[in-house]
Design a protein around this nucleic acid. Structure first.
Lengths: 158, 158
DNA sequence: GATAATTGTTAGCTTAGCTAACAAAACAAG
DNA sequence: CTTGTTTTGTTAGCTAAGCTAACAATTATC
């Protein structure tokens, strides 16, 4: 059954890639509209989540993790810090470096914001058949993996 | 991977939704970076694709299909028209309405731009195991469906 | 024919991304 | 120890894509 099937047809990867591309655009557009309740924007939530879950990170690590350029991360972090969601602590050994840590409020806000933002999506997922739900839950990590090809490993705050 | 014939756990939809959300953000960030070759931007490609595949559409239809506000579509269309990728034709029966049609060049550009943009993603897909490729190709339409919940309007081949 | 609804556009704001140019600190020679 | 190089981040200034509010033009309705 599962592996009884044929290998994917020639050109199938292109079609799949194209579908994933469109689907991602539309998915985010939908979610963007949904959280009118105005928590942090998606890029900010994403950065915040790295800080919350990956402990103190340098700005460079964060930029790499978020796949954006340094000036972008500088701005995102400045605004998140202004809102009291994270703090910048100087590194005692290297004074060029600023490490980013989440505040308690930042942690709370992350979880709240995420839940709010994905609530409507989660509801749609829950409306699918169990088989479809399983399919998606297995596909999601694959898609995540597709989006980081040459990316180094875990951030190493040493 | 043992595929359990079980209903999804409570809370699983939230987790899946969250993973899809992150994955979509990261996927688009990657693709955005990749097409330095500067065809139309993703929003423009997306709009162009509606026009190419859904024939002449009004600006309002297009805004609805793209899930953006009228002023946004006005700008996107103006710029695409400036670049000769589509044309605005007046409606003979209702002079408020402007219909949008793709030019031959627009059609060509859509296909080229898309192919270029998703090439790197397609390569990553092709590097997966056949089973994983099948999984993704089945998941993609599901994700697309998730992003248009109450929408029954024009079908959007893409 | 006056008024209401529909369809787009204009003006002006915000956010998120970028590059180029810079500043400061650390490192490496000499 | 001073000088040049590399690393780390910031500042300045640009572009794209989204939004709301206000408006214009046309059509529909009473």
């Amino acid at each position: 059954m599962p592996t009884r099937r044929q290998p994917p047809a020639r050109g199938a990867p292109q079609r799949t890639a194209d579908q994933l591309h469109s689907a991602a655009i539309h998915l985010l557009r939908r979610l963007r509209g949904e959280d009118a309740a105005a928590g942090p924007s998606p890029p900010k939530l994403s950065a915040l989540s790295v800080v919350v879950f990956a402990g103190p990170v340098t700005l460079g690590d964060l930029a790499a993790a978020e796949q954006v350029r340094p000036p972008t991360i500088t701005r995102l972090v400045r605004e998140l810090a202004r809102d009291g969601l994270l703090r910048l602590v100087p590194d005692p050994d290297d004074r060029r470096i600023r490490r980013v840590v989440a505040t308690a409020r930042g942690r709370r806000r992350l979880l709240d914001g995420r839940r709010r933002r994905v609530a409507v999506l989660a509801a749609s997922v829950a409306a699918l058949s169990p088989a479809e739900q399983r399919l998606l839950s297995r596909a999601a990590p694959l898609i995540e993996a597709l989006s980081r090809p040459p990316l180094s490993g875990a951030p190493r705050p040493s």
